[in-house]
Amino acid sequence: MQFRNNFHLAKKRKQYLNKTWRDYIRFSARERSGINALLLIIAIQCICLLILQQWHLEMPRYFSEEISNTEKWQLLTAEDQNPGLNYHPESVKTFGNVRLVVEEPFPFNPNEIDNEAWQKLGMAESKIRTLRKYLNNGGKFRIKSDLMKVYGMEESLYNKLFPFILLPDSIESVSHIKKPEPEARIRILELNTSDSAALTHIKGIGPVFAGRIVKYRNRLGGFFQISQLKEVYGLSDTLFDVIKVQLEVDSNQIQKKININESGEQDLASHPYIGKKMAKLIINYRNQHQRFSGIEELRNIPLLNEENFRKLAPYLKTD
């Protein structure tokens, strides 16, 4: 009897454990959908990883990143030695699993370009060092074929670069190059004796300015220094700087001088450096002192400062 009870008790315990286990491992419909979505994401990530690894293995190797200049040169020249290698247009060469992007040649002067430019043209580092040593020691490339004088220069590279070398083909073509003619000598005009037609030959002076210069010169009586041109109406400082090197002034050519002991108020006032107010002061002083004994006596007139006196003195006389 006791054995039977023990058997039933063990059986009930087993049934309880089985039910409890099923409760733990059984999933609802919502939980099963989540698990399926997670498995799908994992599968997609695995596929992407495989694709990226494959792309990395086939990714081209570029000059500046993964191979040395020596290896680059060997690969580039290998095509000439083995025509069976695969060549692709558009400056891309494939050698086995290595794909090289080669820059197209560009116009250059071998006397002027730097080492980086030589590398872009396909020159190996050892050849660049040789070339640089040649130039540093005073050497110079005068014609295109001089480039072949560089020790180790490959003829195939030279032929490729030949159309782009900015040098004459031969010595004869150098001699035929037209030398620039020497600059024409600047024509210098004397400002007090040149008429308006002659002044138009001055660079920067047209008929309008030529006419204004002559008109102002006549009012003054002549120029005694070049800087007086700045007083001509409309003549800018920039234009003055251009024309001043093309002109000269002979102060002995001042043709009109005013006699301050004889000239009337109107004649005095017509001069640009005097005007009506100063003319009246000069006449009043002359009336008080009978006459001017010399030009220096004008310093006694009020309002006539030292700067204005020096500008005016070359145009005055007392007898």
Rank of each mutant, 00 (worst) to 15 (best):
residue 22 R to N: 15
residue 315 Y to P: 06
residue 39 L to R: 09
residue 80 D to C: 03
residue 264 G to P: 03
residue 146 D to T: 03
residue 143 I to E: 08
residue 294 G to E: 13
residue 57 L to E: 15
residue 197 A to W: 01
residue 81 Q to N: 11
residue 318 T to A: 04
residue 191 L to Q: 01
residue 232 V to T: 12
residue 78 A to R: 07
residue 277 K to W: 02
residue 213 I to A: 10
residue 291 R to F: 11
residue 207 P to I: 11
residue 216 Y to C: 08
residue 93 K to S: 10
residue 88 H to P: 00
residue 79 E to M: 09
residue 284 N to P: 00
residue 94 T to M: 11
residue 300 N to P: 00
residue 150 V to N: 05
residue 301 I to H: 01
residue 183 E to N: 08
residue 233 Y to P: 01
residue 38 L to H: 04
residue 306 E to Q: 14
residue 259 N to Q: 09
residue 284 N to K: 12
residue 262 E to P: 00
residue 219 R to N: 13
residue 276 K to R: 13
residue 236 S to W: 03
residue 229 L to F: 11
residue 148 M to S: 09
residue 267 D to L: 14
residue 65 E to P: 01
residue 196 S to Y: 03
residue 34 G to Y: 02
residue 119 Q to H: 06
residue 90 E to A: 13
residue 126 S to P: 00
residue 259 N to E: 06
residue 230 K to A: 09
residue 51 I to L: 14
residue 259 N to H: 08
residue 300 N to I: 00
residue 25 I to K: 09
residue 43 A to N: 08
residue 14 K to W: 07
residue 103 E to K: 15
residue 210 A to T: 06
residue 42 I to H: 04
residue 130 T to P: 00
residue 250 D to M: 02
residue 263 S to W: 01
residue 219 R to C: 07
residue 127 K to D: 12
residue 193 T to L: 05
residue 35 I to Q: 13
residue 278 M to E: 03
residue 10 A to V: 00
residue 68 S to A: 06
residue 118 W to L: 14
residue 77 T to I: 05
residue 144 K to T: 05
residue 31 E to L: 12
